[in-house]
Design a binder for these strands. Sequence first.
DNA 1: TACGTAGATTGATGAACTTCGATCCGCTCG
DNA 2: CGAGCGGATCGAAGTTCATCAATCTACGTA
Lengths: 116, 116
Amino acid sequence: MSTLELAPKQKRPKGEVCCEPVVYPEIEREHAERLARVTKALGDPIRMQLVDVLRKHAGKVCVCELVPLFDLSQPTVSHHLKVLREAGLVGSERQGLWAYYYVEPGALRELREWLS
Amino acid sequence: MSTLELAPKQKRPKGEVCCEPVVYPEIEREHAERLARVTKALGDPIRMQLVDVLRKHAGKVCVCELVPLFDLSQPTVSHHLKVLREAGLVGSERQGLWAYYYVEPGALRELREWLS
DNA sequence: TACGTAGATTGATGAACTTCGATCCGCTCG
DNA sequence: CGAGCGGATCGAAGTTCATCAATCTACGTA
């Protein structure tokens, strides 16, 4: 972690830089892309609520319970669940006619670590 | 939005029940919307990197340092900074010719709390 | 076998997003 | 002044997204 001198300079002749250069390792890009994939999936109120419900239930929740929670059609809710699934945030399991969703354990770990 | 057309009680085949009903308080909706506003702003690799750089430098960083970090035009980087600013994630400060950005303290608190 | 149901998929539509070049604004210095 | 610079804004182009009705698939039951 480099310490950056950001103290505003006084007037200076042309060509002088405004501050010390920020060295940004290439490695961070991959990290940021993984984090952005997670936050992008969470970046919708419906999907945020879906994950919130699944998290609070600490178990598998039937889709037939999730759909009536929203003022949305069943295909739309199914679409949001698919987005969450493809982002690795939730998993699903079929049991007969019903499908149950759950939060993929550890899916939010990297984001949690980045925030701390 | 769309008119509410909530399906009435769904009949279950032969008395079989898929699960216990999920009671979802209305209060959570606002919370989810606030969280989604933050995660949506973070849901882009460029913006995620921007916040990451600003966070790691624990101070104000000049825009002229941020732009060369990406293979993007200056207006595009400026746009992403604006999105972050409007989401309350970062703040900006002008000093003469230069503009400095910083992470708004506490902007990530609610998200961090939700994740823990 | 045939029917009804739960949930996923498809296709279409309108809105939102990312990106750029061009332009504009405010500041500094000759 | 006026020129040059950093950064924001504008307008356009192409892409992605959220949403729905209609349809499809898989399963349970009569």
